[in-house]
Design a protein around this nucleic acid. Structure first.
Length: 107
DNA sequence: GATCTGACTATCT
DNA sequence: AAGATAGCCAGAT
């Protein structure tokens, strides 16, 4: 198979489980992955997504702990990410911040 | 195989 | 309040 690596697989597997209209934080993903691979931090998660640039994965549902969207150099631009989330029913408290209280998977 | 890098987060200054 | 530092890991070179 062409699996990049175990980490990629873990990250994508988790992200794919994020329900539509929900979001997860990098820290949350990292925490979940920590169950499989010890000591994983948010850097790993975001960085893997960056390297992979997977349009096939709902990486737009992953935000930082403040609910802020990824930086502009991800996706087609932060505004594109915001548009995708809004289409899925995610509400925003700011142009760049999702409403974590309503859409964060869990805490 | 050593060094650099990274879309994070918490803590300190 | 905003910038700097530390902690942590694995992929890329």
């Amino acid at each position: 198979m062409m699996m990049k690596s175990d980490l990629y697989n873990l990250v994508f597997s988790y992200i794919k489980t994020i329900p539509k209209g929900k979001v997860a934080t990098y820290g949350l993903v990292a925490e979940a992955l920590r169950a499989k691979r010890r000591g994983i931090n948010g850097h790993l998660v975001g960085w893997i997504l960056h390297k992979n640039d997977s349009s096939m994965v709902p990486c737009h549902r992953v935000v930082d702990r403040n609910g802020r969207l990824a930086p502009n150099f991800a996706f087609d631009g932060a505004k594109e990410q915001r548009r995708r989330l809004q289409v899925e029913g995610v509400t925003f408290v700011d142009d760049m911040h999702v409403d974590l209280e309503r859409h964060l998977i869990k805490k």
